[in-house]
Amino acid sequence: MMSAAPDHSPTFARLTLIDRLGRAAPYLLVPVLVVLGFLAIGAPTSWLTLTVSGLAMGMMIFIMASGLTLVFGLMDIINFGHGAFISLGAFVGVSVLFALPGWTDAASLPLNIAAILLAILAAMVLTGALSWVFERVIIRPVYGSHLKQILITVGALIVLEEAIHVIWGGEEIFLIRPSELRGAITFAGAALEKYRILAVVLGLAIFFALRVVLRRTKIGLIVRAGVENPDMVEALGYRLKLVFIGVFIAGSALAGLGGVMWALYEQVITAGMGENMMVLIFIVVIIGGLGSVEGAFVGALLVGLLQNYVAFLEPKLALISNIALMTAILLWRPEGMMRVAKGH
């Protein structure tokens, strides 16, 4: 007679408070920073204005950074050419806005927003399409070699930027926002720019949409699994390469979207804007943890808020506040706030 299998009762150790705090710490940093900002600034109205503009800036940076971090996480590709898609998106979007003066000048909010959405759509379609070509021509031959990837994509960034100069001319282009999005509303005594509120709303919508796609859909499951252990996912029969191309196109389209929003935020566009944004994006991606969308979100909010607070308190320090933030976070967690568990 066979002896019965020994009793097997798996136990799950509860996470200790410290563990849970450690996991939640990055999320907690944002409210902590907001409170610290309140204490340092003192005046509630200025604080509210700065917080909203910091959040708006953070959301826009997040939109641009999310694609980059996912592409890295999934395929170990570092794409310095990402900035070119930001510039390109901005130029396409602004051209669309210029082509629709009837919609942007009309004193109607729905029509204004429709114009912006149309501009965003055009920018996303174009950058998405271009990124498909970009992946085939530029990135495909240099899989696996970081050194070559960096060199090639930097070269591509320069060529695309110069191509923008050839098409749209070498001068910077100034624009004004659609009529209903100019100016500010007053809330609790603080002046809040209308466009910044729109940017926060749009940014939050995109963050939650990304989260739903990544956490609740099958494709999201494959992407997340691919980030953690690509070999295993391929062994299970999924063609990760196709998934990757999809993510690359989506990420570049998001860069184009971010470019349009940033153009409307700054109200001036130059071919070099994407390159300049790449600096902030890299900081965000590094402090968030390469490959982590949530990390990029928290990192972007921290960068946006800190830059606005510091610019108000001590304008001279604003330039190095981001570097200081990056230094502090890397001292705390050398791999970024939310390290992506790598199965290989």
Partner: peptide
């Protein structure tokens, strides 16, 4: 010290950030 400790690839990004901050400074 900050970038090479973890991943050599950090170095490219961090130097870009630092260099641009210094240029602005």
């Amino acid at each position: 010290l900050f970038s090479l400790r973890v991943r050599a690839i950090f170095f490219a990004m961090i130097t870009l950030a630092v260099a641009s901050a210094v240029a602005v400074l």
